[in-house]
Measured scan of single mutants.
Amino acid sequence: CHSECLGNCSQPDDPTKCVACRNFYLDGRCVETCPPPYYHFQDWRCVNFSFCQDLHHKCKNSRRQGCHQYVIHNNKCIPECPSGYTMNSSNLLCTPCLGPCPKVCHLLEGEKTIDSVTSAQELRGCTVINGSLIINIRGGNNLAAELEANLGLIEEISGYLKIRRSYALVSLSFFRKLRLIRGETLEIGNYSFYALDNQNLRQLWDWSKHNLTITQGKLFFHYNPKLCLSEIHKMEEVSGTKGRQERNDIALKTNGDQASCENELLKFSYIRTSFDKILLRWEPYWPPDFRDLLGFMLFYKEAPYQNVTEFDGQDACGSNSWTVVDIDPPLRSNDPKSQNHPGWLMRGLKPWTQYAIFVKTLVTFSDERRTYGAKSDIIYVQTDATNPSVPLDPISVSNSSSQIILKWKPPSDPNGNITHYLVFWERQAEDSELFELDYCLKGLKLPSRTWSPPFESEDSQKHNQSEYEDSAGECCSCPKTDSQILKELEESSFRKTFEDYLHNVVFVPRKT
Rank of each mutant, 00 (worst) to 15 (best):
T323F: 09
Q245G: 10
S166Y: 02
F175Y: 02
E302C: 03
N263P: 12
C317M: 02
R291H: 06
A144N: 12
G110T: 03
T371V: 13
F268C: 04
G131A: 04
Q306K: 14
K103E: 09
P411D: 01
I163S: 03
E283S: 06
K103M: 10
L229R: 02
D292P: 13
S119C: 09
S400R: 06
H210A: 07
E283Y: 04
H210I: 04
R291S: 10
E187R: 11
D312F: 11
N142Y: 01
I129M: 07
E237R: 02
V397Y: 06
G313T: 14
C105R: 01
A316Y: 13
I250H: 02
Q121S: 07
V117F: 15
Q121W: 15
P394S: 14
G343T: 04
L212V: 10
A149H: 14
S132Q: 09
G217V: 00
Y372V: 03
D326S: 15
D289M: 06
N150S: 13
N248I: 09
S400K: 12
A149W: 12
P351K: 04
C261W: 02
K301D: 07
A385E: 04
S319P: 13
K162L: 15
R244S: 03
L178Q: 00
E236T: 15
Y300Q: 14
H341A: 11
E111R: 09
L362E: 11
S116D: 14
G318L: 15
G343H: 14
L180D: 14
T383N: 00
D115H: 05
A145G: 01
L161S: 00
W322I: 02
E156K: 10
T323E: 15
T323R: 06
Y167I: 13
S116R: 14
S338C: 07
S269D: 09
G152Y: 15
A168T: 12
R244V: 04
V117G: 15
L107R: 06
T353P: 00
D312R: 13
L279I: 11
Q306H: 03
G125Q: 09
E310H: 15
I188E: 08
P394L: 07
K112Q: 14
N334I: 13
D197N: 15
I357Q: 00
S376L: 00
K267V: 10
Y372S: 05
N141P: 08
G343N: 13
I232A: 08
S389C: 13
H341I: 05
T371G: 03
D289I: 02
D257P: 04
K277A: 14
N340L: 11
V238G: 15
L266Y: 02
L279D: 05
G348K: 01
T364Q: 03
L201E: 11
K103P: 08
I135M: 12
E231V: 02
C261G: 02
Y355T: 00
S333V: 11
D326F: 12
G243Q: 14
N255W: 06
R202G: 15
G139W: 03
P288A: 10
I157W: 00
Y305G: 13
C228A: 06
Q339N: 12
L212Q: 03
K162V: 07
R370H: 04
T118N: 04
K360A: 13
T241H: 08
N320D: 15
G295M: 14
I157R: 00
R247M: 10
W344S: 07
H233M: 02
T361K: 02
K234P: 04
H222Y: 02
I214C: 15
G125Y: 15
S269H: 07
D206T: 06
D289P: 07
K301R: 07
N141K: 12
C126Y: 02
I114G: 00
V363E: 01
N334Y: 09
L345P: 13
K226S: 06
F221Y: 13
E184V: 07
K242N: 11
K177D: 07
C228Q: 03
G110S: 07
Y285N: 08
P225W: 01
N136V: 11
Q216M: 13
V128L: 02
T254G: 11
D292A: 03
K209M: 07
L107Y: 05
S333Y: 04
A149Y: 13
Q306R: 13
L204V: 07
A145I: 14
A144H: 07
K277Q: 03
I379N: 10
D249R: 04
S192C: 04
N263R: 10
Q354E: 05
G140F: 06
R244E: 03
G343Q: 13
C126I: 02
I278S: 01
W286C: 13
E109W: 11
E283W: 07
H210N: 09
R247G: 15
E368W: 09
I114F: 03
A120L: 10
E187Y: 05
Y194N: 15
D197I: 02
S239N: 02
T309S: 12
S274I: 07
K277P: 00
E302R: 06
D312P: 15
N200L: 09
P351D: 02
Q314V: 04
F296L: 06
S400E: 10
I154A: 03
C228S: 01
L123K: 01
E302M: 07
G348H: 10
K360M: 08
I378Y: 11
L331D: 10
K301C: 03
Q306V: 11
E246C: 08
N130W: 03
K162I: 14
R369E: 03
W352E: 03
A259L: 13
E148L: 13
E187S: 07
K375V: 15
S338E: 13
K218N: 02
L186K: 05
